[in-house]
């Protein structure tokens, strides 16, 4: 998306040069491009390969145990960081045997509603399966998909979407 904006900027820039318009206009455009790049970099620092890596929106089940993991667009593959988070959750669940959890699966708003319900279910199960491989009984974990119905960030930006593509582990009792 931002690449596209940059490309567009370059295209407009070239066109302006060709038509040899006022230098003032091009100068203004260049500063506009420069500020764009700055914000892009700031966001890029929080998104790696389409997956949110920041701490914003994250809550904690206990100290040092984040409640959520993030996914790439249309994917339910667990990243290294997601697996790390889920292992912490599994360790915490092993210590707190009386606690059951629900894993909520979510999608961003850029997909059709019904498909996103299925995608959310797939993401929640990816997290559940990983918790199970670390010794947590499937009986203690229920899943629910909200599709794109419960975003945590109500913006329409790549950053907001990356925060919304998530599975969240919540205490069920």
């Amino acid at each position: 998306m931002f690449k596209k904006i940059k490309e567009l900027g370059v295209m407009v820039f070239k066109k302006l040069l060709k038509s040899s318009l006022l230098v003032l206009v091009t100068a203004l455009l260049m500063t506009a491009c420069a500020t764009k790049t700055k914000t892009t970099k700031k966001i890029e620092a929080q998104i790696a390969g389409d997956v949110f890596t920041g701490a914003e929106t994250v809550k904690y089940l206990a100290t040092g145990v984040p409640d959520r993991v993030f996914f790439a667009t249309n994917k339910s593959v667990l990243t290294t960081k997601a697996r790390d988070t889920l292992r912490k959750q599994a360790a915490w669940l092993r210590k707190n045997k009386s606690i059951n959890v629900t894993v909520e699966g979510h999608a961003d708003e850029r997909g059709t509603r019904e498909y996103n319900l299925a995608l959310g279910e797939r993401r929640a199960n990816a997290a559940k399966d990983y918790l199970m491989t670390y010794g947590i009984s499937g009986n203690r974990i229920s899943v629910i998909s909200y599709g794109k119905e419960r975003p945590v960030n109500s913006g329409s930006s790549p950053l907001a979407w990356s925060q919304n593509r998530r599975s969240v582990t919540v205490k069920a009792n």
Binding site: S76, E114, L117, A118, E121, R122, A124, N125, A126, D129, I144, S145
Partner: peptide
């Protein structure tokens, strides 16, 4: 035993067709 979604009627109104999601598969 899980989420059912995306329902529609058959043209004669006698059936409902829908998706059922289980273990990450719909």
């Amino acid at each position: 035993p899980g989420m059912t979604f995306a329902p529609r009627f058959s043209p004669d109104g006698k059936k409902i067709i829908m998706s059922f999601a289980k273990n990450g598969n719909s």
